[in-house]
Design a binder for these strands. Structure first.
Length: 359
DNA sequence: AAATCGGGGCC
DNA sequence: GGCCCAGATTT
């Protein structure tokens, strides 16, 4: 931390020039993205939530889909949560979709359709943390609050050659404070987007394009040759192994699905009735009696196996085709029937989608 | 402070 | 296979 504040002092007298260079670079090189053609708070909010922990290229088609499906916050507020989840399907981090819907209802019904205009006010809404509140306030309402996302943290840590973990709250605070000291030198929304864009296009995680960087001459990491080592991050959690056994039951016009409950992955999404085994060794003969009243009346065959990789979990999924009467099943949740038409299926998660498409 | 939540692109 | 991404929320 000591190192950090020394750097901060050294750079004080160059701040205006640094900001001016970044903004000039941004105005010339920024990508043409749909949410940059407006300052409409609804569009800004939607884009920011969609892009949390998500690359622009991945979020872009979802932004278009949401704008077509829900042109205003009132359309979104009046939709059901299932409709919102369905539009979100495949993007991941599904609590974002539920919070998006909650916030739409709060703004539409309690705030007369108007978003709060300050970071503090915005951060009270579900799904809006420090980053998103600052982003909306600065871009939509011209409020001078710097954003700190993965891009900005990388750029700043290299600028100042910070070797402490950037996910440490104290280090985050220091970087925001440093940025706050220079945000007055530009339009807040442009200032914030310029830093992020620099991280996304030039100050890349690996092999940064320092020769194209508008502030390379002030970059301490470049001067010291440490850019590729930065930013430093704390160690990550290990991957959990899980074994899912899915029961595939369908007839001519219905497919049996249950909705996943809270407190686990894929909350609120739909899938086949499922039994989670405690280990790889746990075999069907052990768990089948737990799922059906009379195993004698069941025909069962292994259809397909997938290994589905997530960030912190590895799902070993087995899909068993089941033939029996529905009354014979012992399920904790009620069974729902849906017409077997792809468009009519509710928001399934990625693994289910993979299985259905493979058949 | 640590754990959890996804999916995809890149090396 | 590991890392990272326009992070937030819960414990």
């Amino acid at each position: 931390m000591g190192n950090f504040f020394v750097c901060k002092m050294i750079f004080c007298r160059f701040m205006q020039e640094i900001v001016s260079n970044i903004v000039a670079w941004y105005l010339k090189n920024a990508r043409d993205l749909p949410w940059r053609n407006t300052r409409n708070p609804y569009s800004v909010w939607l884009s920011e939530v969609l892009l949390q922990q998500t690359r622009v290229n991945q979020g872009l088609p979802y932004y278009e889909k949401f704008i077509v499906h829900f042109p205003t916050i009132h359309h979104l507020a009046q939709a059901s949560e299932d409709e919102v989840l369905k539009t979100w399907q495949g993007l991941g981090y599904y609590s974002r979709a539920r919070n998006l819907h909650k916030t739409a209802r709060i703004v539409a019904e309690s705030l007369q359709g108007n978003f709060p205009q300050t970071p503090e006010g915005l951060q009270k809404l579900p799904g809006l943390g420090p980053y998103t509140a600052a982003a909306i306030a600065s871009i939509a309402f011209n409020y001078p609050e710097p954003v700190l996302d993965g891009n900005v943290a990388r750029v700043v840590s290299r600028m100042l050659d910070i070797h402490e973990a950037v996910d440490l709250p104290s280090v985050k605070k220091g970087m925001i404070e440093w940025l706050r000291g220079q945000i007055a030198y530009a339009e807040p929304g442009t200032f914030n987007q310029a830093w992020m864009e620099l991280g996304a296009l030039v100050c890349l995680p690996a092999r940064p394009l320092c020769d194209s960087c508008p502030i390379a001459s002030w970059c301490m990491a470049r001067q010291r040759g440490t850019a590729e080592e930065l930013p430093v991050k704390k160690a990550k959690a290990k991957v959990r192994e899980r074994w899912f056994h899915y029961l595939h039951l369908e007839n001519e016009n219905a497919i049996w699905l249950v909705q996943r409950q809270a407190g686990d992955i894929w909350e609120g999404l739909w899938e086949f009735p499922m039994y989670e085994a405690a280990s790889e060794k746990e075999v069907p003969s052990d768990w089948l009696p737990k799922l059906v009243a009379d195993p004698q009346q069941v025909k069962i065959s292994l259809q397909r196996r997938f290994t589905h990789l997530l960030t912190h979990q590895r799902i070993h999924a087995s899909f068993w085709k089941l033939s029996t009467r529905p009354e014979n099943l012992r399920l904790q949740q009620p069974i729902f029937e849906f017409p077997l038409v792809q468009e009519e299926l509710p928001a399934l998660h990625r693994l289910m989608d993979k299985y259905l498409k493979a058949n």
